[in-house]
């Protein structure tokens, strides 16, 4: 459900960012999705594949999804902590923090084109 609208927004975003001619040469899309982004890579792949059968111009394109860990940077001691079990606390000074530096993103971080 959610994944379908993400796929739509990938397509819309790329259509805005790149010229038609360039899009036709696109062969791969690389996404970074944080573990907090609520995106299930498997479902996103499925949604992307389902879209292909609806005949979009992206039907040659491969989707790669990298899932990224949740990290916070402590406001008091600057230490960076990778969050386990959703406990948002600095492992160095034990202060709670919501200062996310990684983990909520949904980014298109690389695109490959065939020359």
């Amino acid at each position: 459900m959610h994944e379908t609208s993400i796929v739509n927004s990938i397509m819309k975003t790329l259509e805005v960012e790149f010229e038609e001619e360039k899009l036709n040469k696109m062969i791969a899309i690389y996404l970074k999705v944080g573990k907090l982004s609520n995106i299930e890579p498997r479902l996103l792949h499925n949604a992307f594949t389902a879209k292909h059968y609806c005949g979009t111009k992206f039907h040659h394109v491969k989707l790669h999804i990298e899932s990224t860990e949740i990290k916070i940077q402590c406001e008091s001691c600057n230490h960076i902590t990778q969050i386990e079990n959703y406990k948002f606390t600095c492992e160095n000074c034990h202060k709670p923090s919501k200062n996310l530096i990684q983990g909520e993103e949904m980014l298109i971080h690389k695109i490959e084109f065939n020359d």
Binding site: I6, S9, I10, K12, T13, L14, E17, I27, A28, L31, K62, H64, E105, M106, L107, I108, H109, K110, I111, E112, F113, N114, D115
Partner: peptide, 28 residues
């Protein structure tokens, strides 16, 4: 999971574009 560059190279070069496009940009 990387694209197989050797076969691609035979047909031409693969051109990469590094981006940082936020998928929720339109919503935000």
């Amino acid at each position: 999971m990387s694209v197989d560059k050797s076969t691609k190279a035979a047909r031409g070069t693969v051109q990469c574009e590094n981006t940082n496009i936020n998928l929720l940009k339109a919503n935000d």
